[in-house]
């Protein structure tokens, strides 16, 4: 398979950041109260991810190893600031509803994780496709969770009433904070079953590398919270 197509497939399906790798859980929980918020958050993260992968891959030979993490953070933070202002200018209502979670894209572990494990070791074009793939995978995850929560919690899809309120009583808890935890818990449980099934078939999924695996105490070496996912992915990429 063409390497660029392979990166897209890898990001959207094989190592989907939401469903398989379970990365970036803070925004996943926080902004998925409706499908449009999930979509908006996913796409803004994608823009930042693609541009940061591009810049980091382009500068990978210039940035000294010792200060690489601060350099990545500066690049990502600048991009996030740009995206934030663009959204305030052109999509004020979305920017309002996403609020503080837009600037918090800086600390999203997907972005620094991809920078560290892929973009800093690969040429520009595959890095861009890696960014697009991962970004779209994240968007897909957020939109699906948003759709589910919106339809259960309000009977709407993208703000359009599809389940008539005459017979459907919205389960409001799903669009509130506890609903986020509940949906994510069910998602984790379903993925546990899928993981078992795939293992039985001999096609194991990539291990979750985010914080949800639950032993942060093992990481804590670098300046990133993504320390562990970085080392896990770095090994995987070496074999490619």
């Amino acid at each position: 398979m063409n390497k660029n197509v392979e990166r897209l497939y890898n990001g959207i399906i094989k190592e989907n950041p939401t469903f398989v790798l379970m990365l970036g859980m803070c925004p996943t929980l926080a902004v998925t109260s409706s499908a449009i918020n999930g979509l908006g958050m996913g796409l803004s993260t994608t823009v930042v991810l693609v541009l940061s992968n591009l810049l980091i891959a382009a500068f990978r030979k210039v940035i000294p190893g010792g200060v690489r993490v601060p350099a990545f953070i500066v690049i990502v933070a600048s991009l996030v600031t740009m995206v934030q202002f663009m959204m305030q200018a052109y999509l004020p209502s979305l920017s309002e509803s996403l609020g503080v979670y837009i600037p918090l894209i800086v600390v999203n572990c997907i972005i620094l994780g991809r920078a560290e494990s892929y973009a800093s070791k690969n040429p520009v074009v595959p890095s861009i496709f890696d960014g697009i793939g991962m970004g779209l995978g994240f968007t897909l995850g957020l939109t699906c969770i948003g759709l589910l929560r919106e339809i259960l919690g309000a009977g709407q899809i993208f703000g359009v009433q599809v389940l008539s309120l005459d017979w459907f009583t919205p389960i409001t808890i799903f669009v509130m904070a506890p609903g986020a935890f509940l949906v994510l818990a069910c998602l984790v449980a379903v993925m546990n079953i899928v993981r078992k099934k795939m293992e039985a078939k001999g096609k194991p999924l990539a291990a979750p590398s985010g914080c949800l695996t639950g032993d942060c105490s093992a990481c804590g070496q670098s300046a990133l919270c993504t320390g562990r996912s970085v080392t896990a992915n770095a090994d995987a990429n070496k074999t490619e």
Binding site: I173, V188, I193, T213
Partner: peptide, 23 residues
Amino acid sequence: IPKPFQGTAIVLITACLMSIAFM
């Protein structure tokens, strides 16, 4: 705990209940 819910899933369910309590 049911097998699929062991580990993180049950922790998230607990977080959900705590969140309801804090509401």
